[in-house]
């Protein structure tokens, strides 16, 4: 694995600063009721997990995740305007205002989406990887899965299927300590979640400190190379979420012990600070560049809010019904053919 260049590391910082600014802005917009959807799952605190691991991919590789998907979308290069517009349910949103926070995707970036049912995207990941195997391509599918999902049937069935079919999937378990409000220790018999790989005979790349983008990158690179050549791999990212499971989870921040825990993570394991220190230790003072990235993030996000608020909402029956099916709109009770329209 080539050691990441200075430019690469600076670019990681740029991505992480953008995510943090985007997510914290979303949080404010939610509190101000300018984002009105009930679900909003923020990636603050997780930045290094996504940035470090996706840095190991090439353009033709695939990415899929659950509902904590804003950061993933931004890392892959989805336009912040389209992401913010989707938060606000606008026509200009990446999913035309039909998906919302949990359903971002971009076919152009091989980003197969955010999915809202815990574990529901895992067999889809296997299916996407199957297409690569079927057609003899060596592209891999990087799949993010929360700690909570490792207890559900989708996880078991999908990992097992990936093993017997040698599918090139990197299963990245983002263990942030809680499945909604339930600690990993209370939810899983095996609390070292990466060890679940053994049950399926999948190559286990172990636990990684996922607040450290470089550590994440190093292991992800090995896992990607392995998946490309052989088959599935599991990595467990130890990370932490700075906000509740969803923004609507008010009890989260009000619990004293949790707040103390959160403060400790922010003080000691802050991913942007860790990366900043790593860069400066190796390349000297880059504070000017990092500040410029932070400023640029503020501008991009402010502009995305402006763009989103100025955009039109999807309106009317055509907008409501379109894209239910390929080829024809849904028209129940307005046509003689019920349940799918006539062209």
């Amino acid at each position: 694995m080539p050691s990441p260049s200075k430019d690469m590391l600076l670019d990681w910082y740029r991505q992480m600063a953008l995510i943090r600014e985007f997510e914290e802005t979303c949080h404010q917009l939610y509190l101000q009721k300018r984002i009105t959807g009930v679900y909003l799952h923020l990636y603050s605190g997780h930045e290094a997990s996504g940035v470090g691991s996706m840095a190991a991919l090439r353009k033709s590789d695939h990415v899929i995740t659950a509902y904590r998907d804003h950061g993933i979308a931004l890392i892959l290069g989805m336009d912040a305007n389209a992401v913010m517009a989707e938060m606000m349910g606008k026509k200009t949103g990446g999913s035309g205002g039909k998906g919302g926070s949990m359903h971002l995707a971009s076919a152009a970036h091989n980003f197969w989406g955010g999915y809202a049912i815990v574990g529901g995207h895992l067999p889809l990941a296997a299916g996407i990887a199957l297409e690569a195997r079927y057609r003899g391509k060596d592209d891999v599918t990087m799949t993010y899965v929360g700690d909570g999902a490792t207890n559900n049937g989708y996880f078991h069935e999908s990992l097992n299927m990936s093993a017997i079919w040698d599918l090139p999937v990197i299963w990245i378990i983002e263990n942030n300590g809680y499945g909604m409000g339930t600690e990993v220790e209370r939810a899983s018999g095996q609390t070292e979640l990466h060890r679940k790989a053994a049950a399926y005979g999948i190559k286990d790349f172990g636990r990684v400190d996922a607040q450290d983008a470089l550590a994440v990158y190093e292991v992800a690179s090995q896992a990607v190379a392995y998946a490309r050549a052989h088959g599935p791999a599991v990595i467990e990212h130890i990370t932490y979420r700075y906000r509740g499971h969803g923004v609507s989870d008010k009890q989260y921040d009000s619990r004293d012990d949790m707040s103390a825990e959160l403060r400790q993570w922010m003080d000691e394991r802050e991913p942007l600070k860790i990366l900043r220190d790593r860069i400066q230790a190796q390349f000297g003072d880059v504070s000017e560049t990092l500040s410029a990235h932070e400023e640029s993030a503020r501008q991009i996000v402010a502009q995305s809010v402006e763009f989103a608020e100025a955009s039109d909402l999807p309106r009317g029956r055509d907008a409501l019904l379109s894209n239910t099916y390929v080829g024809s709109p849904l028209v129940y009770k307005t046509s003689d053919s019920i349940g799918a329209g006539s062209d």
Binding site: H62, I64, W112, G120, H121, L122, P123, L124, A125, A126, G127, I128, A129, L130, E131, A132, Y134, G153, Y154, E157, S158, N160, M161, I164
Partner: peptide, 19 residues
């Protein structure tokens, strides 16, 4: 394997990807 959740979902992913 006897994995209906995966049968259902793998088919979706494979179809999205072009099979």
């Amino acid at each position: 394997p006897i994995s209906e959740m995966a049968i259902g979902g793998v088919a979706v992913g494979a179809a999205m990807a072009g099979l």
